[in-house]
Design a binder for these strands. Structure first.
Length: 197
DNA sequence: GACTCGATTTCCT
DNA sequence: GGAAATCGAGTCG
């Protein structure tokens, strides 16, 4: 499904203000943003929203040791291990809601990413939540950190790009929610958006 | 493209 | 105790 781009938006005064909203509102606004961790990163091209009343969300059953960052202040990182192997990176929004970063177009520190990934294929460096976390060097030690300061940098796009949206990936509940957002036409999406033109 | 396997934590029963 | 998990790489075709 094609989503209208270039929506007018008040520029947020701060990172905190930007994230003090529902994840479904934050996620599309993150597409096209530049995100770096220790000067390694690029442009966010794919993200998914998870809400407190969302059966697919880790926060659905309330706070636990793992998901406590999701219930902390907005504008922080929520990192968890996926399938026992990968790390996944989320931005915390309103309590119990977060945006999962799924893909980035690499722009900074590409050599570092390639070294970390051990896979030189440029298109696959950050295409997928596990790959992205590995390329940027983010693991559980970054859980709960404030996105508003080093080693992070986050620059929102000046003009909003054309977006596509669709069903989220890898979930078994609330699959009908079109809460996956992507940069239309990007070569770095983790998977295509069905029906997107 | 379909399939399979890895490897760990969480939370449910 | 055990299924399920916001996945990725490799194999076989």
């Amino acid at each position: 499904m094609l989503v209208e781009g270039a929506a007018k938006r008040q520029a947020p005064k701060s990172i905190l203000e930007f994230f003090e909203r529902r994840a479904v509102d934050v996620a599309p606004d993150l597409i096209g943003a530049e995100f770096c961790f220790n000067d390694v990163g690029g442009m966010i091209v794919e993200a998914e929203a998870y809400e407190p009343d969302d059966p697919a969300s880790h926060s659905f059953r309330g706070p636990t040791a793992r998901n406590s960052a999701m219930f902390g202040p907005p504008g922080r990182l929520y990192v968890y291990r996926s399938y026992g192997i990968h790390w996944c990176v989320n931005f915390v929004c309103l309590p119990g809601s977060a945006v999962l970063l799924r893909a980035i177009e690499p722009r900074h520190g590409i050599d570092v990413m390639q070294k970390r990934r051990g896979n030189p294929v440029f298109r696959l460096l950050c295409s997928g939540p596990g790959r992205l976390a590995q390329a940027l060097g983010i693991d559980l030690s970054a859980n709960g950190l404030n996105l508003d300061r080093a080693p992070f940098s986050l620059n929102l796009p000046k003009t909003k790009p054309d977006l596509v949206s669709g069903r989220r990936i890898g979930i078994s509940k609330a699959v009908e929610q079109p809460w996956r957002f992507g940069y239309a036409g990007s070569a770095h999406l983790s998977r295509p958006f069905p029906h997107a033109k």
